[in-house]
Every structure is written in structure tokens, then in C-alpha cells.
Design a protein around this nucleic acid. Sequence first.
DNA 1: CGTGTAAGGAATTCTGACACG
DNA 2: CGTGTAAGGAATTCTGACACG
Lengths: 101, 101
Amino acid sequence: MGEGYREKKVMTIGIVCELTGLSERQIRYYEKRKLIHPERSAGNTRKYSFTDVERLVAVAEKIEEGWSTHDIKEKERKITQEQRTDLIRGQLNAAFGMYRK
Amino acid sequence: MGEGYREKKVMTIGIVCELTGLSERQIRYYEKRKLIHPERSAGNTRKYSFTDVERLVAVAEKIEEGWSTHDIKEKERKITQEQRTDLIRGQLNAAFGMYRK
DNA sequence: CGTGTAAGGAATTCTGACACG
DNA sequence: CGTGTAAGGAATTCTGACACG
């Protein structure tokens, strides 16, 4: 009980800046582009998780490589789609065993 | 790389209040009694880790059971001492194998 | 001893805009 | 498109003290 620390939204933006080396401006901008989804406190303060921090670092690297926020978003969508395909393939395999070893 | 989320001091006191159900007053008081040791930001804001949160919950339970902060501190000291004793006992055993099975 | 509260100040965060490109 | 910055306000946190007991 009480696990899942990596997913828990507990950090304010200032700490995320320290952890990632990014500016507040950048972090808020990546949120606007739907690359991260922090929660909000009762007083409207953004709250981030460790996975958000990891994702921000990954996003920042991509951008530095020349990717646009849109490209990054699109690439992730495709990867997710591939994973869905693999999942279905696995289920079919389990059900019909075409590649049973 | 980048592990050790549980130990990282990243939460402000407000979030710790939410997570533990304790008041700011209580949390700061337990710190004064040396039961927790948050870090500070450049601007003097306290920063807590998930282990601090766990510890705070444990402390609050003890207090509710009637323990004093001093008793809690003392009990922990004794437990730590026991662990040291066990460690040494283990090392002696490894070196001289009195109980080798 | 452990905790609530009002007080005043300081640090933090928020939004929308101007700027460059 | 991605990011810096100054602006003004709102939310958050800090410390020391008075209070009760």
C-alpha cells in the first residue's frame, strides 16, 4: 500500500526545473503542447510526478535533436499504436498458437 | 541512473500535509524534535521525500498511541543499536564461522 | 508537551502579453 | 515554433509569539 511514488503528482514547478534543468517557460509550454499533464492544487499550482520529470528530459532531448513538439507527440502516438498491435498479435497467438514453440 | 525516488527531497510542506493528513504545525514540530530532516530550497522552503512522508505517518501513529516525541526518538536509537549489534554478530560469524551450517 | 492560530514578510507560482524569428 | 522577460496578482511558506495545559 502506498506505492506508485513515480506516478504521484507531488512536485511544484520549481523543483522540476532543478531536476530537469529546464525553465518554467519550457515546462509550461510542453504542457500546452500536451506532452505532459500535471495536476493542479486547490490553489491552481501545478503538481508533477517523477515520470513527468523523466518525460520532460526525454522531450527536451528530442527538441535539441531538432524534433518539433508536434513530431514528438506524433511519434509517441505511433509507438503506442505499435504496442497495441503487438498486444493483439500476442493475444491471437495465445488463442490460436500459430507460433507456439 | 536517476533512481532513488523515495529518498529524493522534492515535496513542499503543503503536499506533505495532503499525503499525511497532518498540519503544517505538526510537521514542523516533529522536525524540531529531530524526527525528520527535510532539506531547504535556496529560498528557505522545506523539501521532503516520500520516506519522510512514511516516517511522518509512523510518528503520528506513535503519538496517537501516547508516545512522546522523545520516546519515539529514543526507541529508534535503540533499534538502530540492535541492528548494529546484529551486523557485527553476522560479521563475526562470517569470519569465524561458529554457526556454520 | 503537542498543537492551534493570527501576523507580517518573503519566496513561489500563475496568466497573458510583447519580443524575436 | 520555441523561449526569454517584465508585470501584477494570488497562493504558499516561513518564523516567532500568544494560548492552553
